[in-house]
């Protein structure tokens, strides 16, 4: 009797698990009429611009939007590409210019030359084929803790940052593990060229207090007072002005110009809702611009957008530098290897 019961129990468990495993690996079918929008995690959170934009758009156009939070930007792209055989998303938000090549190679995006593009400065049109359209941008910059560094000591250029007086005063980020860290690596290549960037890094080794794994730990160390300079975005002080009412943290503007990261939005060729998708993209590039700029701490691309006063503490650099996506994709592996060799010596 007992044996029988045991047998039954385990058979039941087995059947249950097997059923579950089949349902897990089964392919779900594409659903209904809603517009499916993939965006990176921070865009969709309560804190991000996503929820407010979707609500307003649904109200104005009567289109149901399903905003899917798909991890960080890299994870989101991996997800879209891995779903190529069974596509779900109509619109994808947040692929930056420096990672776009992989998306182009996958050949999943639909060209869309929006009429709004005329309001967007041409240096932001990073994709000449308009598969990805810019919706916001930021500049990498060093942020200064003015309570720990006198005004006359604040560096004015990348070149001046290697001065021995900044020994152990700078927190950097590893380009192998962080997009902000990668931003600085590209910035130095844009400024010093392929021949010069490694000697800048060689000289910076002494000045870097540490090179962290990601932006979060770097900025955390910085606000804990470990060092007066940190690699971040030129818009970082906006947060401190808005929520902490302090102007202690300021952006150091460099005369060589600042490297730019541009976030793009694209429509998938597989979408069967192209008209609505285009409406949504146009909405992002016009009415949603202020919401995006405020929530993302980035600059709006549409030159008609008026920014609040807090953005006065995030001065736009006079010169924005960027690199062609294709050149980047071709050389990135080599640059990272060279960088690692120099930095681990």
């Amino acid at each position: 009797m007992e044996v029988l019961m045991n047998k039954h129990r385990y058979v039941c468990v087995l059947v249950a698990i097997l059923t579950l495993s089949f349902s897990v690996f089964a392919q779900p079918a594409k659903e209904s009429k809603e517009l499916v929008v993939y965006a990176y995690d921070a865009f969709c959170g309560d804190w991000g611009p996503g929820p407010a934009i979707v609500e307003e758009f649904e109200k104005q156009y009567g289109v149901k939007v399903n905003l899917v939070s798909a991890g960080d930007a890299v994870e989101m792209m991996t997800k879209v590409i891995s779903e190529a055989g069974n596509p779900w998303a109509d619109v994808v938000i947040g692929i930056t210019d420096d990672m776009a090549q992989k998306m182009y190679d996958a050949n999943l995006l639909q060209r869309y030359e929006s009429p709004v593009l005329s309001d967007i400065p041409s240096f932001l049109h990073f994709d000449p084929l308009y598969r990805l359209l810019p919706f916001d941008y930021g500049n990498f910059a060093f942020v200064v803790d003015t309570e720990r560094m006198k005004a006359q000591d604040i560096p004015t250029s990348l070149a001046s940052l290697v001065d021995p007086k900044y020994k152990n005063k700078v927190i950097l980020i590893d380009p192998r593990t962080s997009s902000v860290g990668l931003g600085l690596l590209l910035w130095t290549i844009e400024v010093f060229g392929e021949d010069g960037y490694l000697s800048w890094w060689e000289a910076m080794k002494e000045n870097a207090l540490t090179i962290t794994d990601g932006w979060s730990s770097a900025y955390g160390l910085f606000t804990e007072g470990e060092a007066p300079l940190v690699l971040s975005y030129s818009t970082s002080p906006v947060y401190h002005v808005t929520y902490e009412e302090t102007t202690r943290y300021q952006t150091a503007i460099f005369c060589e110009g600042h490297s730019t990261t541009i976030e793009g939005v694209g429509i998938l060729a597989s979408s069967n809702q192209k008209a609505n998708a285009q409406k949504f993209v146009d909405y992002l590039l016009t009415e949603a611009q202020l919401t995006i700029a405020l929530a993302n701490s980035m600059y709006p691309v549409n030159s008609k957008t008026e920014l609040p006063a807090a953005f006065d503490y995030a001065p736009k650099p006079k010169k924005s530098l960027s690199m062609e996506t294709e050149i980047l994709a071709k050389n990135l592996d080599r640059w990272l290897t060279e960088w690692t060799q120099v930095m681990s010596r």
Binding site: D174, T210, S217
Partner: peptide, 21 residues
């Protein structure tokens, strides 16, 4: 994270960092 941040940077690289890269 501990190795990169507290170790001071790329001098101390582990397999996990390379896999991530």
């Amino acid at each position: 994270a501990i190795i990169l941040v507290l170790g001071g940077g790329p001098r101390y690289t582990t397999m996990e960092v390379e896999i991530y890269r």
